[in-house]
Nucleic acid binder design. Structure first.
Lengths: 252, 252
DNA sequence: ATGAAAATGATTATTTTTGATCGAATTCGA
DNA sequence: TCGAATTCGATCAAAAATAATCATTTTCAT
């Protein structure tokens, strides 16, 4: 029984049980507790459940703002690292694009001290973050609000983004692989990302190592479009060599 | 039972009980009081509740955009009254403009149950308010964010508003008098209000009685533009007769 | 087929969690 | 204002869970 099969079984058990512990799953599936723990770590990273000491809990309904607020996961600490790193590429006087993903949002705390700075974004949490930062000018894309993603999406927003130019664009991605380049989970996010990429001189992609080597379903940009990939230090060496082989500059 | 699970249970209890004490929770969950105290400290740090001596209290709801910090002043209760009244003019299927004033914002809680509804606004708190209301489609004006007013202003925003049409516009004003009509304190707000008024079939002005008969410095619309004035019940009779004499319809 | 890479399981050391205890701080009534 | 009762914070020890390490098996691309 491979990981994908166990993953399904674990999630199915969780559907009924609300919370469960490691040993319980191990017994039920006839698999060692060590492996179950490894599975749970991975499932937690994918956001499909919440890891607890001793087991796991159902993931709360994907509420982006709470998703941004979840501090205890491994992915969150990676995001913080990546956010800080990405923010260090921003200089006073810059104009930058920022998309609406949580990884890109992690840049915000580190950008507050940079002044002057102009940020063009479709992310409401990002806009809120700079509400009281006088040195930072925020330009919010207009259009239909997506309450789930806490962002502005749609044709209108894309037209808005297209009408601006910025030196640097910072975008996230749901998947990144040598084979398929950048992939997104949703058409909405992909189109905004594409528009930002097209209107910026440099394109920085923020992506934690858990998503590298994986693909989501919608291809939206080739690796050749990247100025650099910003990721964490846990990137598998094999992935690293593959990406470097393709000429991708990696910042970590 | 680990911390995450207890955390949920504690918050669920708090949802119903408003306030609770340590021993009470400890008994209910069958866990030592020491542990509950530790939990409460952590929950308080996360801002999910307020720690008190001996227990905890509900935390005030916090949204990405902290709405207007109106306390329980007289003006606030008038605004609530006006907001409810104005909301009663909105029907399912409407498309409406809402500006970024606090009086107009007071409509929001009463609009949440109206579905379907399309709202075009430049107010960030209003947008945030409907973030979780699936039946309500929010169209946010794009452009430069004004952190002080928690709204989007500028040419871009005005062009955005102008490109739409709505059946009804709800706007606030800083002053309203028979002599000078509607007056505003700031160019920014006035231009947005004008644009909304121009693109709507009906114009409703929300203005509490304390501002009626007073003028701010920038005239932005004549009384004849109003479909109706929505105000509170404390309007001075003399003002009322004057306004009616000018053909202003008053809803209160 | 074959060797490298990945997945799995067992074992051990480390970390986390929990509850108990005790002195210090806070609340509340007189 | 004072004193008793309660609550709090810090420290400690025990138990549980985890992370790290290593050997073994499986998988996969060549």
């Amino acid at each position: 029984m491979g990981y994908p099969e166990r993953k399904n079984k674990i999630l199915r058990i969780l559907d009924k049980k609300e919370s469960l512990d490691v040993q319980e799953i191990a017994d039920e599936l006839g698999i060692s507790a060590v492996t179950i723990r490894r599975d749970l770590v991975q499932l937690a990273e994918e956001g499909l459940l919440i890891r607890t000491h001793g087991g796991a809990m159902k993931a709360p309904a994907r509420h982006p703002f709470t998703a941004f607020a979840d501090k205890e996961t491994v992915a969150a600490s990676r995001k913080k690292y990546i956010g800080k790193l990405a923010a260090s590429l921003v200089k006073p006087g810059d104009t930058i694009f920022m998309d609406c993903g949580s990884t890109v949002f992690a840049m915000c705390p580190h950008l507050k001290t940079i002044s002057p700075l102009r940020i063009i974004t479709n992310s409401l949490p990002a806009a809120a973050e700079f509400m009281d930062s006088p040195g930072i000018q925020v330009n919010l894309a207009g259009g239909e609000m997506d309450g789930q993603r806490k962002a502005i999406h749609g044709d209108r927003a894309i037209a808005h983004i297209r009408s601006y130019h910025a030196a640097k664009a910072f975008i996230g991605t749901d998947g990144l692989s040598v084979k398929h380049g950048l992939t997104a989970f949703s058409e909405k996010e992909a189109s905004i990302s594409t528009a930002m990429a097209a209107s910026a001189d440099k394109l920085f992609v923020l992506c934690d190592s858990s998503k590298i080597g994986k693909d989501s379903y919608l291809k939206f940009a080739p690796l050749s479009a990247l100025t650099a990939l910003i990721t964490d230090r846990e990137l598998a060496p094999s992935q690293e060599t593959q990406l470097k082989g393709k000429g991708v500059k990696i910042i970590q």
